[in-house]
């Protein structure tokens, strides 16, 4: 379970998250929606403790992430897989080394086992046999999938996706969402997915939250979102009718 209670975050005087509360029950998937600069990526970084809130608390299961130091955060982060908006692949490591990195760093498995798991994971994201390429040689969609593979290599029960289809063409976008769906079915992970592509996002989500300039304007089930009268929620759910 992921819980944000009254979280506020400021950057150099500007309030970028203002008293935001969210709940993601175990096994559920939350779609996090909002315009650019609404604070969506920030929520994800707060959840994994990469940033600290100025007020409020952040919980992952029973751990209060917002109160833990970097060392104490390690076991929490072991349970989280994070897909970064701009891939964040280590550009000096090969694809194989990138995906193996979280396992190697944690000394979680033997070398042979790691290699086997990397091979298997690459096949799962439909990129078999590219272990020895460097990230710079890949296209955007391929990098996203490698990032997905790296984020899930240690089988985390929680998955955070920061705009997994940003800057991708519609075909690749569909492929990524299909992959996410497949992974979700396979392991029933708790997940938060940030996106502005709501029509593609809806089939994956149990719940939806909408942020607007740092404030939460909606949180509820997808059915509740459909029924919402809030103009921004409507604009996101039905982009085709918005003037």
């Amino acid at each position: 379970m992921i819980r944000l209670c009254g979280v506020t975050k400021r950057f150099e005087g500007a309030t970028v998250l203002d008293d935001v509360s969210l709940t993601v029950p175990t096994g559920a998937t939350l779609g996090l929606v909002g315009q650019g600069g609404a604070g969506k990526s920030l929520v994800l970084k707060l959840v994994c403790g990469l940033l600290r809130p100025d007020a409020g608390q952040v919980f992952v299961d029973d751990d209060e992430v917002s109160a833990l130091d970097e060392t104490a955060l390690m076991p929490v982060r072991d349970r989280i897989g994070m897909i970064f908006q701009n891939y964040a692949l280590f550009d000096y490591l090969t694809v194989g080394e990138n995906i193996a990195f979280p396992l190697r760093q944690r000394r979680a498995a033997s070398a042979d086992e790691i290699t086997a798991r990397v091979t298997k994971r690459l096949a799962q994201v439909h990129l078999p046999g590219i272990e020895d390429r460097l990230p710079a040689e890949l296209s955007g969609g391929m990098k996203k999938r490698v990032c997905l593979a790296r984020a899930t290599i240690h089988d985390p029960p929680i998955l955070l996706c920061d705009d997994p289809t940003a800057g991708l063409d519609p075909v690749t976008t569909n492929r990524i969402f299909a992959l996410l769906k497949a992974m979700q079915v396979e392991r029933a992970a708790t997940a938060v997915i940030v996106s502005h592509d709501v029509p593609s996002l809806l089939p994956l989500c149990d719940r939806l939250a909408v942020l607007d300039r740092g404030r939460r304007v909606f949180e509820g089930t997808c059915a509740e979102a459909e029924a919402s009268a809030d103009p921004l929620v409507r604009a996101f759910l039905h982009p085709e009718v918005t003037p």
Partner: peptide, 17 residues
Amino acid sequence: SMVVTEQVDALRMSGAP
């Protein structure tokens, strides 16, 4: 450049301070 491309965040997530 690792910081601004979030690679340092990815390190922290992978258990590498």
